[in-house]
Amino acid sequence: MERELQILWAAIVAYVLGGVLAIFGVALGRRRGHVVLGLLLAGLLLHALSLGLRWQRLDHGPFITLFEILSSNVWSLMLVYLIAYWRIPKIRPSAAIVMPVMFVLMGWLMLAHPGEGHFPPTYRTPWLFIHIGMAKVFLGATLVALGIAGIVLLRRYRLAVQRFASLPEDRRLDELAYRFMALALVFDTLMLITGAIWAQDAWGRYWAWDPLETWSFVTWLLLAFAIHLRLTYRPQPVRGAWMIVAVFVLAFLTFFGVPFVSESPHKGAI
């Protein structure tokens, strides 16, 4: 286990270096996109190695304990964000918003106990990977949207206007952020569907209003509400950005709050 943790630490160091460089790059106006990309990619590969070693040792994926859930989510969120960072260079300064969020998760991960948990029999199904995979893409898409929305919100302050001056105008960022919200809606829908299929087989019912199911459904509704609101009223980008923040906060609480306070058997499986 020690080697896994050492590699994880190395990954965190690479993430933090990449994140700090991205933040200072925005603050000082000296962007080093390729270096940041390289550091984040190095972190991702090291992290994948650490997760793989743990998986091999325990003979199950990182889906059980708080440590495993945080670790796998940090990895998947970084993967989704890295793809966006690589493919859409214009939004790279959003790393200044996204990485502090990731630092919070990484700090929490470092505090979590890395001990192993029991892999329940109901988790021995391909639906585990499908359901969790969809959930991770959903949260990743919401994180990218949050990063873009953050730029729109920070631009209201004089200090930040110049820092983000080279980015597209707010309307274009708003449109791009809502593309990621639409992507999030598709994967959130898939997550709910695959979760229902799994629940039917695991517990003999596809829906039982357990805390995680209910919060996930409310998150889906808020996401649908945000998209409909944008189409109905065409709000200013700033208001649209606040809506994205609200969706992200709810999704974050659903992912990292509800499973650990609920008493239902449906916990940790995200």
Binding site: L221, A224, F225, H228, L229, L231, T232
Partner: peptide, 9 residues
């Protein structure tokens, strides 16, 4: 769509 939003709320 306004009614849609109201009903979602």
């Amino acid at each position: 769509l306004k009614l849609t939003l109201t009903l979602l709320v």
